[in-house]
Amino acid sequence: MTRRLLLLAALFAASRVDPALAERLILSLSSNEVAIGSNYTGSRLVAFGMIERDGQNVPRDGPFDIVVTVLGPREGIVVRRKELLGPIWLNRSQQKFVQIPSFLGVFSSRPVGEIMDGAMRRKLRIGVDAIVNAPEFTIDRGGDDDPFRAALSRLKTRDSLYVENPRGVTFVSEGFFRAAIPLPAVAPVGSYEVEASLIANGVVVARRQANFELVKTGLEEQLTELARERPFLLGLGTAGMSLMFGWLASVIFRRD
């Protein structure tokens, strides 16, 4: 899987982080594996972090900001638009997005618009808009795909798959923060990347990454595996189930 998005973001970040600066970030997740069982209706993770300072350099003053970005497994999707053809509405134009994050969460201690200006946000991929509008988000074909990007972002937001919470990061004490990450039930299984950025005066001072996996467990895992490894068996089983219950009902309700 290519990770163009993160790679680019990381490259930009690296160029922006001043090595002489004295701050380091520590990041930890409340769980590294989120299990999906039969009663799964979504989940909630917490990211904890700490800003560490070495004693040698003079601590900078001024406010710090934290932005936590969560990227779900990449997926390919097609966005279609209905257009009027004669009297009827049809899906006519479409735009493919090959490698977009299936889940995207941006949690910050302040609205990202206040943390840094638009040009910088786009450069550093800070905020949902900046990530969705980044050139590597799609195979660019001029500005034609802009309405499709906007629609994608809107529809994903409607399903709680793209989330931006400007109050998502709270400082528990000086230098210690937490961010709640809500995962909707429709968030796909796979590997999720969490990245925290420490920002001071509109400059990223430090970054730290962590991962968690969303996995199916128990019966859900076995059934998924069966569907993948032995699909004929699953089909036979389901067909058998149909026959058995159909027969059972006819026995129960028999009135001769």
């Binding site: 997926e75 999707i77 279609r80 638009r81 529809l155």
Partner: peptide, 9 residues
């Protein structure tokens, strides 16, 4: 009401 739709490719 929503002209756009998203489907997995």
């Amino acid at each position: 009401t929503e002209a756009f739709s998203v489907t997995p490719s």
